[in-house]
Amino acid sequence: MPLAVTAYTATSALGLGLDAHLQALQQQRSGLRPNDFGPASLACWIGRVTAVESTSLPASHAQWDCRNNRLAWLGLNQDSFVARVHSAIHRHGTSRIAVLLGTSTASIGATEEGYRRLEDDCRLPADLYRPAIHNPHSLSAFVASVLDIHGPCQTISTACSSSAKVFACAERLIRLGVVDAAVVGGVDSLCDSVLYGFNALELVSPEPCRPFDAARRGISIGEAAGFALLERADALPEATQQLLGYGESSDAHHMSTPDPNGAGAELALRDVFERAGIAPAQVDYINLHGTASQKNDAMEAALVARLFPSSTRVSSTKGLTGHTLGAAGVIEAAIALLALREGFVPGNAGTRSPDPACTPHFAWRNEARPIRIALSHSFGFGGSNACLAFADTRR
């Protein structure tokens, strides 16, 4: 069932809100910087949201204070998103809206800090002795509290597909009549577990990441917060941007490596084609998962060549934002929606020498062109795959 996207917002290393993201995309200005995060900074590049340090939660929500929830607060307060949600609450009622958010680490950064500062009796220090933040549901519970929403509240943690899968969950709940609208999104903030964990897997690049480059060396990790408001399209005919459908699959090929043939990703794509009622030739633009890891990019380039005509334009924008992990799905959905709204294809940022396996589908620089249907790919660890299809009804 198509859903109207009645509001959305993005906060990342590119800036706060949609205008900052659009400007960075148009200028191909990267938000990556040398790593200056943590007590012992790993030699790599990161996509850091510097405004998090100067952000504080209101006293009424002090129990939720941690980097991840401060980033969520920062993200919620862009693009009049809270006001748009309050309008939806007025239309539907506070118990008829769901909060569905994705994250890969939630507020684990606060837990890391707590363990670094354990008291002599091995207890967490008093300022971090707050059970609300030391669990995976911290983010969703915090956002539901801030927005005063009392409908279903769910946290999805499926690695890099987390905040794409929340769109699918929202569609099911709305179609089945459980709710009338949903706040979806995702937040992941920088923490040592992520930086050193990916480095231990030899996936972190010592230089800014270069998706689909012949000499790519791995990912650059970023942090971000993104949210969208989804409602029934038939009830809001004036809404011009829609979620047409979604596709999901789990290939379980390997814990940290995609199926080299892209079998799981292809299943997700065929699922989105069927649900959205579209053919590959109708897709104008795809925001690729494109992490700049050797195996992901090789798989995805082959998948594009196999399934889409050369008229479909594709690119990765992780060279600008970094890989924002559990927030990647919603941030790249927001970028796809901006491309639809503004009529342009963002260039594949960071690439110097394109991998010879890349076909003419790839847009290496920005291209002005009308886009009616755009896809966003999210392929997570463990073979958790999700694809989203968006449309602009003005075209």
Rank of each mutant, 00 (worst) to 15 (best):
L203D: 02
A298S: 13
P208E: 12
A224C: 13
D251Q: 09
S205T: 14
L236D: 09
S220H: 03
L320K: 00
G247L: 01
C191D: 15
E248Y: 08
E223H: 10
Q282V: 11
L201N: 11
G197A: 15
I278Q: 04
A263H: 12
F308M: 08
V204R: 05
H254C: 09
T324Q: 07
E300M: 07
H253W: 12
V330Y: 00
L303I: 09
R232V: 13
H289I: 09
A305P: 02
S220K: 00
A200C: 10
R216K: 10
D297Y: 04
F227W: 10
A224L: 13
Q282M: 13
R313L: 03
G322Y: 02
T317L: 01
L201Y: 12
I221E: 01
N261W: 05
E231T: 14
S311D: 07
V314D: 05
E223S: 10
E266Y: 03
A225S: 11
D284R: 01
A305F: 03
L244M: 12
A263P: 00
V314Y: 01
R216H: 07
Q282S: 15
D284C: 05
H253P: 00
V204Q: 08
A265V: 08
G226S: 15
H323M: 10
A215I: 11
A302K: 14
V330P: 00
S250R: 08
G322Q: 02
R275F: 05
L244K: 01
A333G: 05
S249H: 06
K318Q: 05
D297L: 04
L201R: 11
L230W: 07
S205G: 14
L195Q: 08
A298R: 13
A215S: 10
A224V: 13
T321N: 04
S293Q: 02
V204H: 03
N287Y: 07
D271C: 11
Y196N: 14
I278V: 15
A292K: 03
A214C: 10
L244S: 00
N261R: 12
P309D: 06
L320N: 00
A281M: 14
D284I: 00
G222F: 02
V283P: 01
D271V: 04
V204N: 04
L229V: 13
S205Q: 11
M255V: 15
Y285V: 00
E202N: 14
V272T: 06
Q294G: 07
T321D: 02
